[in-house]
Amino acid sequence: MRVLHYVNQFYAGLGGEDSAGIGPRMLEGTVGPGRLLAQLLGAEHEIVATLVCGDDHAASNATAAQELLEMARDAGAEVLVAGPAFGSGRYGLACARLVAAAQSAGLPALASMHPDNPGISDAGEAPVIASGATAREMRPSVQRLAAAVVKVAAGEELTPADGKVTPAARIGQLVTQRSAARAVELVLRRLGGDREATEVPVGGFGVVEPAAPIDKAASVTVALVTEGAVVPAGNPDRLESARATRWLRYPIDGVDSLASGEWESVAGGFATTAANADPNRLVPLDAARTLEREGTIGRLHEEFLVTVGNGTPVATARRFGVEWAAELRKAGVQAAILTAT
């Protein structure tokens, strides 16, 4: 079978973060992890070409996946493979979107990434094969991926035994005992010695690998971002007040302060009286602008990014984070101040 392999700019050998903005392109034959993949696939399958896109470009351009898919079709792809993306959010999102687009267009496709990769929820109907968390686990990850490709090429279904990620869903259901009665039952079970009893697992912490510090704020571009739902008065773009499905951007070049009456918060989760009386209480534009003028901030990014963090599912919020990171990197921003409510 004719296999096309997708990797990001780094694994294609085209450069690191400095090249993350490059657009979709196709390279002949295999590169980087594709060589190992080709070797493991054996003689029956050939990686005819490698698709590449910069992570920032892929994560911040909705059309990138479609462009890559068209290239794959032109190259006569019969199977599309993406990754492994390990734990990298932007790369994972790029892989997920591409295989989702391919699968829904009838081209068998699969991606490889760590099960905690924020991009995983965008893979749609396409299977995702678990990789390790980092490139240190390249070999076992590609081995597993190669075996899965062979199965997909043979038209077989992938199962968790193949490393297919099947997120354990928690299903809501109606029960006869109302929640208050179950709370009393649970208290009694715990008092009775069953200290592990709970309806939802407790504990567990988010782990975010901190970015390296910047050298001096005076020499970089700094962005303001918020989940406080600050929008122009009247909410022309109809940002949701809860359960965000999207984020927006508003230009602030030449604006010294967010004036009351011109900007408002449409967040539904907290009292907005104070913020609407002075929207700088949610996005500190006036102070940041002063610090820019004084030279403490090199440059303030020309727009701020905004969504509403009110009842937004964690998976959605993580995806927004990946997209914001790509967006800001692409624009040359090196630090961001996120105001949260």
Partner: peptide, 19 residues
Amino acid sequence: GADGTGPPLVAGPRSGAVV
């Protein structure tokens, strides 16, 4: 999330139990 696969709690306790 709509499919029930996301983390169930944003800020849950470290001990105790949850209904």
